[in-house]
Design a protein around this nucleic acid. Structure first.
Length: 566
DNA sequence: CGGTGAACGTA
DNA sequence: CGTACGTTCACCGA
């Protein structure tokens, strides 16, 4: 049975002729060619805005998004599984098994093409059923779904899984159902981010690349010559060693030794103190900076990932394999600051940039329920009241708070850290508990309910056998409860922004952990910015569930990403 | 050919 | 001041 506020969508796999799809609601089943399905979803969305259930947004929503349909609410079975059970790897079979309490190791594997696998008794399964006689989902669905007649059963299996996940989520944590909703919206947003891309000023971007890599080469020979030219600027400081391969760290180390710079490795922060000692070091560091742009963010990158519409595109994922932050490919998440002036609104549009201020300590105030620390979040600058309370300068208070959340290895914070323990014992005890759970190899749950396994190095060394690895697990856990909760708030905010600015023609074009970038029509940009701030208030209130913690956003309407940077 | 580590960009 | 990610390069071993 399909509940009245739920609808399901499933599609035949791409790449095997014309695609078909099915739409299943409480009172109708629409089975037909993809175009008909898209129109059906558009109609149902407009009429009742149900919660769309799919095995994953990537599979099911991509054709909808391509056609401009913007579902408001979803239950993404794959993302729900990741939240409930931890880890990143998920298939329909694994999600089905976990939801039904079946053992993961019995999940039917996809066919390998091996002649001998046909001896499995699973081959006798009802050809029309998505479920095998042993209760597991069939493993050959990629092939099986080429027959559109199988789609309805596949969609109903997704709804059954979602239903069981919903029950399990409600039992596990009071906030987990809401987290699944936000996570599902984020996964849908990821599909839209890939479709829309990040708007660039191509000419300006090419200029910035040229500053580092030289003019665009037209032949392979020119490219080689440009590379030699860059190398020569370093090697001219090392007469007799011009054959050194600057891309080989061992050779670079030897080269540096030959001019009296003796270093354990050639990393930037190791070499930086020697920048003025020898011109070779300065030349090498500058070479590294330019080489990064020339190789990773050079002309090849531009040609491969920037479309004819001057949009930089890459795939996005709603959560990483650790605490659950979003990830992006093709440089969208690690674009060098030097290239940011190239990210620019297109004619008739503006960028709306919003970044959350001091999100991690504010998140700590929520998840630890420390009333004193929460009081400090009333300030625009949270470190000011903390410094006052501790009787130290602001920079000392800041280092102490960050050390408490992440570090406590090199005890620069010292006295101030002890002050934190006295002033905010609830928050500090919360961090200590996460650290201890990690040391013991126990999984933790984030505020929103995501299960985060800490046993990543468990096979190499069980808890209690290697103090260094125990400490690494502890730091990971302590970081994950903060980073993971921050990611949850961020996604709730991003999903709210997506929903509340769409009617103004705005697009979310970049999500960067604590920063949102939107592309909006010029005439609506100020209103979009206002709605972004309102969305933060609404999302934070829902996410924090009444905790008296304030979140702040620095929001501005700009032409280029590099504008109005603080 | 695939896997690994160094290096470095972002938060 | 720790954690995480993606990308490129050279090297290693099959």
């Amino acid at each position: 049975m399909i509940p009245g506020d739920v609808a399901a969508v499933a599609l035949t796999p791409p790449g095997a002729g014309p695609r078909h799809g099915v739409l299943v609601t409480a009172d109708q089943v629409l089975l037909g060619p993809l175009d008909d399905l898209v129109e059906g979803v558009r109609r149902v969305e407009a009429a009742s805005s149900p919660r769309w259930v799919w095995w994953s947004a990537d599979e099911a929503a991509t054709p909808l998004v391509a056609a401009g349909v913007a579902p408001a609410r979803a239950w993404d079975v794959a993302e729900a599984h990741r939240l409930l059970h931890g880890g990143w790897h998920v298939t329909p079979g694994l999600a089905w098994a976990a939801a039904h309490g079946l053992a993961a190791h019995d999940v039917a594997a996809p066919p390998t093409g091996d002649l001998f696998e046909l001896v499995s008794d699973r081959a006798v399964a009802d050809p029309a059923s998505a479920v095998l006689p042993d209760g597991h989902l069939r493993g050959d669905h990629a092939e099986w779904l080429r027959d559109p007649g199988h789609l309805e059963a596949w969609a109903r299996a997704a709804v059954e899984t979602a239903h069981l996940q919903h029950d399990a989520a409600g039992r596990t944590s009071t906030r987990l159902v809401g987290t699944v909703h936000a996570e599902s919206a984020a996964a849908l947003l990821c599909v839209e981010l890939l479709r829309d891309g990040l708007p660039l000023d191509r000419a300006r971007t090419e200029e910035l690349v040229a500053d580092a890599a030289g003019p665009r080469p037209t032949t392979d020979a020119e490219e080689v010559a440009a590379r030699r030219g860059r190398d020569a600027l370093v090697l001219r400081h090392a007469p007799g060693r011009e054959a050194t391969d600057l891309r080989n760290p061992a050779q670079v180390k030897e080269l540096l030794a030959s001019v009296g710079v003796d270093v354990p490795n050639t990393r930037k922060w190791v070499l930086e103190p020697y920048r003025d000692v020898n011109p070779l070091v300065a030349a090498l560091l500058d070479w590294r900076r330019d080489e990064r742009i020339a190789t990773t963010y050079g002309y090849r990158w531009l040609d491969a990932h920037v479309g004819a519409d001057d949009r930089l595109r890459g795939r996005w994922t709603a959560c990483d394999g650790a605490a659950g932050r979003m990830t992006a490919e093709n440089g969208l998440h690690n674009l060098p600051a030097a290239l940011r002036p190239g990210v620019a609104a297109h004619p008739g549009f503006a960028l709306v940039r919003a970044d959350l201020g001091q999100i991690e300590p504010r998140v700590l105030a929520v998840v630890s329920a420390d009333a004193s620390f929460a009081a400090a979040t009333r300030a625009d600058d949270l470190y000011a009241p903390v410094a006052q309370r501790l009787g130290v300068e602001r920079p000392v208070a800041k280092v102490a708070v960050l050390a408490a959340m992440y570090g406590q290895r090199s005890g620069a914070a010292g006295e101030a850290l002890k002050g934190l323990e006295r002033a905010y014992p609830v928050a500090m005890a919360f961090l200590d508990r996460a650290y201890d759970a990690g040391r013991r190899g126990e999984p933790i749950r984030t505020w929103g309910g995501r299960l985060v396994p800490t046993g990543r190095f468990l096979a190499a060394s069980p808890p209690g056998t290697d103090p260094q690895l125990d400490a690494a697990r502890g730091r990971f856990a302590r970081n994950a409860i903060i980073q993971g909760a921050a990611a949850e708030l961020f996604k709730a905010w991003a999903a709210t922004v997506r929903a509340t600015t769409r009617d103004l023609g705005a697009q979310v074009v970049l999500c960067l952990h604590d920063e949102l970038l939107l592309h909006a029509p010029l005439e609506h940009a100020e209103e979009v910015a206002a709605r972004v701030d309102r969305a933060l208030d609404d999302a934070a209130r829902r996410w924090a569930q009444g905790a008296p913690v304030r979140f702040v956003s620095d929001t501005s309407v700009i032409a280029r990403w590099s504008d109005a940077k603080d």
